[in-house]
């Protein structure tokens, strides 16, 4: 009779411990898998690949273009190129133009304040679009802000890869920002696209370097003829 009591207690303990261990194991496994999400793209991915994949995945509105606003640290001129032989869009900063999802565009930044004689040719790659109210697309451009530090780094021969993302509505700051969009700098060992994706929805990839067109420049330097349209700057709100 005493033996039976011990056996019953032993089995009860084992079942209880096993239950705890199973629950603990499931929690650990799910947490680990959530943290180890697979990110196939990073800052070393060739330009255009992310955009192409986005064109596959994002429900595209045919012929709909996304306005983009380029902001410089001071005054300056922004030129949007679509093709070497097509007429570019030239506007003073902040300049705005509408571009197509999945495509990359070459820009020219010239007449930069505090940078006399410096011309930079960054590229922007649109990987996602906004969904503004119908008819007000021009009022909600994606802002691309270029800072003085980024211009200095580009002039010194470095390549800046910047991902502009849209923060999730549930986590957005309800207050109006009184400064430029906050920028987070990550280490080169980190995946900048992953970091942007963890914080929101990547919209545009900006790549800024120091290469300038020379006399024997390849026409592909200026783009492949992607759709490009001028738009009006948003009204002050």
């Amino acid at each position: 009779m005493r033996t039976n009591n011990c056996s019953t207690t032993w089995v009860t303990r084992m079942v209880t411990v096993a239950g705890f261990l199973i629950a603990f194991g499931m929690i650990v496994t799910q947490t680990t898998q959530a943290q180890q999400r697979y990110y196939p793209l990073d800052q070393t991915t060739p330009p255009g690949v992310y955009g192409k994949w986005s064109a596959y995945q994002v429900p595209v509105r045919p012929h709909a273009l996304q306005p983009v606003k380029i902001e410089l640290p001071g005054t300056g001129q922004v030129t949007f190129f679509s093709h070497a032989r097509s007429k570019p869009i030239v506007a003073a900063a902040p300049a705005q133009a509408a571009i197509a999802l999945g495509h990359s565009y070459r820009l020219q930044l010239s007449d930069l304040q505090d940078y006399p004689g410096v011309n930079l040719y960054p590229t922007i790659e649109l990987v996602d679009v906004l969904h503004p109210p119908a008819g007000q697309e021009d009022q909600f451009p994606i802002p691309v802000t270029i800072t003085e530090d980024e211009i200095d780094q580009a002039i010194s021969g470095r390549l800046i890869t910047k991902v502009i993302y849209l923060e999730p509505a549930a986590e957005a700051n309800p207050l109006l920002l009184d400064r430029k969009n906050p920028t987070l700098t990550v280490a080169p060992q980190e995946n900048v696209i992953k970091e942007a994706d963890l914080r929101g929805r990547p919209m545009i990839i900006l790549r800024l370097g120091s290469r300038t067109p020379v006399i024997n420049e390849d026409p592909a330097f200026f783009g492949n003829g992607a759709p490009l349209s001028p738009t009006a700057l948003p009204r002050m709100r």
């Binding site: 330009p47 690949v49 955009g51 192409k52 595209v60 197509a100 070459r106 590229t123 592909a220």
Partner: peptide
Amino acid sequence: VMPMLSHPPARSFASKTTQ
């Protein structure tokens, strides 16, 4: 196979020259 929704190039500004 995945249908072709648009035709952007796989690699924009594919560098054929080194400056």
